[in-house]
Write a protein that binds this DNA or RNA. Structure first.
Lengths: 225, 225
DNA sequence: AAACGTAATTATGAATTCATAATTGCCTCA
DNA sequence: TGAGGCAATTATGAATTCATAATTACGTTT
């Protein structure tokens, strides 16, 4: 018997969950903004039932906030919550790094090296978008390589919550250089198979990223994110 | 203006989420078991709409698994997933320990000391239930004291997922003694304000707990949890 | 008798309807 | 003129209905 993956047939509410989540992450639905069921139903061309199911899920994920009889709003992330999320992300990435180190085969390593090269190239040519994409690929690959599906899930949720903030601020030149250097260090540890070392750097990488983002926000003086 | 907490008026679906989750955690709904909407609706005396909303939320939390047009089943936790959950819990508790250490005031400390005493007393008198309760109080207090609401949320979810397994196996005499000793160590670090030390022990505490539970399961030879 | 195909039944996804809480707007009265 | 209260409107929570996918039961055929 060959191994076959189950046939995927997303239901409306599943589709709506990802569509709405993306709208929030991409900041097209703003924090604090009311989410009018009626309008969204018309926009998506669905009835209220699947939309409401999706909102319940998003609420449990923390992206929207429900008030009984008063509808849903996009959750307003405070500076505090952003900090909290990063603190957790730091230890999750550390754990992922430690676990991933031993799990990568040659082909995985080649792929990551390739993405790392692409990242360096994007940095050299000041291609922020391409840099961002390659960067994300690498982190995602390492998280996945941990072999811990729950870790992947929780990381994904938290990463999505801080994603909006990262959208809103542009990396400073200094931070960009620092981030690239950290990635170089990661590759060194990865090649050596130094799991603890990789974990340490990945954690520090997140801590620094957090600091950079918060500094950028402090510069704007905004309380909400 | 006095600080007032918002008026809580849980909706049906919220109530159903906790009720159903409890049924699963307490192993009254068995892993793999079909969840017939109709029956549950009658049992709870509600219509299908709020029940289905609750199922969507539970699915996003991982407690049930949905298949389009084929309904919901209680998620079957594999040994693998249990291990994964514990790995994450370990680093979350470590983080919580590190953060909590500096956050506790005298009144908090007195309360924890009290619960610790109660735990020791329950141990001395072989009162498993009371021991379990006091134990849980302490961990919960430390998690909450971390001041990281997201950490509390993610921890709660993961803890709930392994709770069922902990229900099913009884601590061995050796493990019980070891756990008590670990808690003593925790208190020592806590009193000293040694945040790193507390984190280390809390992490190890979870790692050991995981090992004990897995050993117990291996003894039964069960693959599913 | 077993396997396949088809009809009947059941259960689920989604739309619609209904009841009620919340909000808005208007009116009264100080 | 403004504050308070009441009615009208709107929006939401929940029940019901409808359409269809999945399952079951049965009959046919080899």
């Amino acid at each position: 018997m060959v191994s076959i993956e189950t046939i995927e047939r997303p239901t409306l509410h599943e589709e709506l969950v990802v569509r709405l989540r993306d709208l929030i992450i991409e900041d097209r639905l703003k924090p604090g903004e009311k989410i009018p069921e009626k309008e969204l139903c018309e926009a998506f061309g669905v009835s209220r039932t699947p939309l409401r199911e999706a909102l319940k899920v998003l609420a449990s994920e923390g992206f929207v906030t429900l008030q009984a009889n008063r509808g849903a709003r996009v959750t307003e992330a405070t500076r505090e919550e952003l900090l909290d999320a990063f603190a957790i992300l730091a230890v999750l990435e550390q754990l992922a790094g430690e676990l991933a180190c031993g799990m990568l085969d040659q082909s995985d390593m080649r792929w990551i090296e390739g993405r790392h090269e692409a990242m360096l190239d994007a940095y050299a040519n000041r291609k922020r978008k391409r840099y961002f994409r390659a960067n994300q690929d690498i982190h995602q690959a390492l998280i996945r390589a941990s072999g811990n599906a729950l870790l992947e899930g929780h990381h994904k949720l938290l990463a999505a919550r801080v994603q909006r903030a990262r959208f809103l601020v542009n990396m400073s030149e200094e931070r960009w250089a620092q981030a690239v250097e950290e990635h170089e260090q990661m590759m060194v540890k990865l090649r050596k198979g130094d799991s603890k070392g990789l974990g340490r750097i990945m954690k520090q990488h997140i801590v620094n990223k957090c600091a950079a983002i918060l500094a950028a926000f402090d510069a704007t003086g905004a309380e909400k994110v």
